[in-house]
Computed example of a mutant assay.
Amino acid sequence: MNKILVIILFSLVSLTWGTTWIAMKIATETIPPFFATGMRFLVASPILIILAYFTKTPLLFPYGQRWFQLIISIFYFSIPFTLMLYGGMYVSSSVASIIFSSMPVAVLTVSFLYLKKKLFLTQKIGMFISLITLLTVLLIELESQCFFQWKGILALLFALFSHAFIYSECQKKCLNVSVITFNALPSLLSGILLSTTSWFIESPHINTFSNRSILAIFYLGDFSGIFGILSYFYLQQKVSAFYASTVFLIFPVIAGFLENYIYKNAILLCEIWFIFPLIIGILLTLIPVNYLKKIRNKITRLSCLLF
């Protein structure tokens, strides 16, 4: 029964995250990115607040860390998610998903540079392979498409490392709050902030919004945003972080197939080949630290016996 539940959770996360990128592209067909992101969070926040009420989960962070809740609202929700939609307007869904499949590598890079975290040799090799491969894929994409794509790529990279930085800050502060607490109020604050900002910057005209763009917003807010995050959280409780993180290798494939089906945008053959070293690099960064320590200790003992 537990294995079936793990398979269901893994499949649900892969599908929701894989379809997120195509839903973002559909949403921004007729809705400007600031307003689309704001509406996405305003749609999600009431359900999260209701879940918090019925599960007796606090909405506020622990005393002394509540200022960080505001920072999360801006630098984890408002800015990055808006940049994701903005970047999706210029970059294909498959490339956007490939960029975000590098999240484990981005977190490891930020932890190494910012937190001065010690890395094993295999992690350093994996980080190097992943970053070089990602850079190569992005350069190929720029060369094969219109050059204005650099705007979308920069937006997505900023969103990626903004998420990685906040995640590293959470590790640094030993922040241990419920996934509902982490998302509920920041979603509401971000929704209000972005929707208000949109009226002054984008001047959205609701009568121009298409039905499928509106449906995409509800999908992003209620299904992808809530059930995708909660499913990943519970998946992490059922399996190790290594196996849970392998979902980052699956959802770009789903995004690529969907984009090819809906928009007839075929992935370049060379990009497909570069996905393999990217996967290898990500897997090397995901190898559990405890496992690497055991290998290091075995090698140390073996070298003492030999010499």
Rank of each mutant, 00 (worst) to 15 (best):
F112Y: 15
S203P: 00
G87T: 13
V6S: 10
S240K: 01
K264R: 07
L131K: 10
I132A: 08
I7W: 14
P252D: 14
F34N: 04
L305I: 14
S240T: 15
Y263Q: 00
T16C: 14
Q171G: 08
T122N: 09
F158D: 02
L235P: 02
L302G: 09
K238F: 06
A216M: 15
Y243K: 00
F251L: 05
F165S: 10
P62G: 07
F77P: 01
F165P: 00
T122M: 09
L48I: 15
R296I: 02
F200Y: 14
Y167S: 07
P46G: 12
T37E: 03
I299S: 03
Y63Q: 08
K118H: 12
T246A: 05
G281E: 11
F148D: 12
W21V: 11
S102A: 14
L283R: 02
V43A: 13
W67R: 11
V107C: 05
L157N: 08
N290A: 04
I295C: 02
G256W: 10
N211Y: 02
S178P: 01
S94E: 08
Q149L: 13
M1Y: 07
I74H: 04
V179C: 11
T37R: 11
V6G: 06
F148M: 15
V239A: 12
Q149G: 06
E271P: 00
N2M: 10
M24R: 11
F233K: 13
K172H: 14
M1N: 09
I26C: 02
I192F: 09
G152M: 02
S144L: 03
I282M: 05
I74N: 03
K172T: 12
I226P: 02
T122I: 15
S144E: 12
Y232E: 06
L51H: 04
Q123T: 01
L9V: 06
L189Y: 10
I201T: 07
L278N: 02
G228E: 12
T109C: 09
Y261M: 09
L194E: 01
I282K: 00
L42F: 11
C170M: 08
L194M: 05
L60Y: 07
S11N: 12
L230E: 04
A255V: 04
L135T: 14
F274R: 01
L230G: 06
R66A: 11
I262Q: 13
K264D: 07
V247R: 02
L193N: 07
S111R: 05
L286I: 14
I267F: 09
N207W: 03
L160Y: 04
V95Y: 01
E141W: 01
L85G: 03
G126I: 09
S162I: 04
G281L: 08
S178A: 13
Y243W: 07
